[in-house]
Design a protein around this nucleic acid. Sequence first.
DNA 1: TAACTGTATTAATCAAGATAGTACACTTAG
DNA 2: CTAAGTGTACTATCTTGATTAATACAGTTA
Lengths: 121, 121
Amino acid sequence: MIVVDYKDTRPIYEQIVERFQNLILTGVLKVDEQLPSVRSLAMELSINPNTIQKAYSELERRGFIYTVKGKGNFVTYKEELMEYKKKELKKKIDDVVEEAEEVGIAKATIIYYLENGGDSL
Amino acid sequence: MIVVDYKDTRPIYEQIVERFQNLILTGVLKVDEQLPSVRSLAMELSINPNTIQKAYSELERRGFIYTVKGKGNFVTYKEELMEYKKKELKKKIDDVVEEAEEVGIAKATIIYYLENGGDSL
DNA sequence: TAACTGTATTAATCAAGATAGTACACTTAG
DNA sequence: CTAAGTGTACTATCTTGATTAATACAGTTA
């Protein structure tokens, strides 16, 4: 379910955070479903429990999971997550548009590219 | 012209690379214009010359500048850069679209958002 | 020749990420 | 209640990439 890419320059805990985010947002992990425990996942991936813990803390901070001491980590109610994801997406889209405009590519050109693809940028 | 943000977690040389990329792509630095020398910029920013060198090497590798030993570093012909920038932009746009579709947001919705903004995602 | 340029190399330092080991608190099944 | 599973916290150590430091070499130009 979770894979670590050692060729990736990003820290392991970030990779884990992103992987779980995707699993949750795509519905592979259902609402209130339990995530692997800190220790078991660490064992499975042959990495330190502290690294998993760091990833889980970040996922909780971002609102993707909630933690119950002594029980485990669980997936948050999905609607809240969609809101989070939408915000992220909007930010990315706005960034791209801004970046394009800095080099003289208008928003309309981007829309045209989205509609027609290919070399239309 | 160049600023280093120590609160930024990214390495200094990456910040410098990105800053110069923008200055070049936005036309603030003209074609064939000379960049500050390795030593002078290092002095100005109070950082090590090696760090500037690393940034300039990367900029050359990416095709943004060309280097003449004994003379300095100069801005590359702009059309080539636009091609580079367009490729980058396309990649980013495609990424966003893919990411959106993973959570059930269609390309059409993104286009609508671009056209109308606000909460239309 | 002197004073600029870029380039290369080696060693030392620093900080973030990751590991290792241990301890403590809570929950649940038995 | 006890045992085994959870999450949490803390400290010490290791590793790696980024950065600094110091120096040397090579090309360009006034």
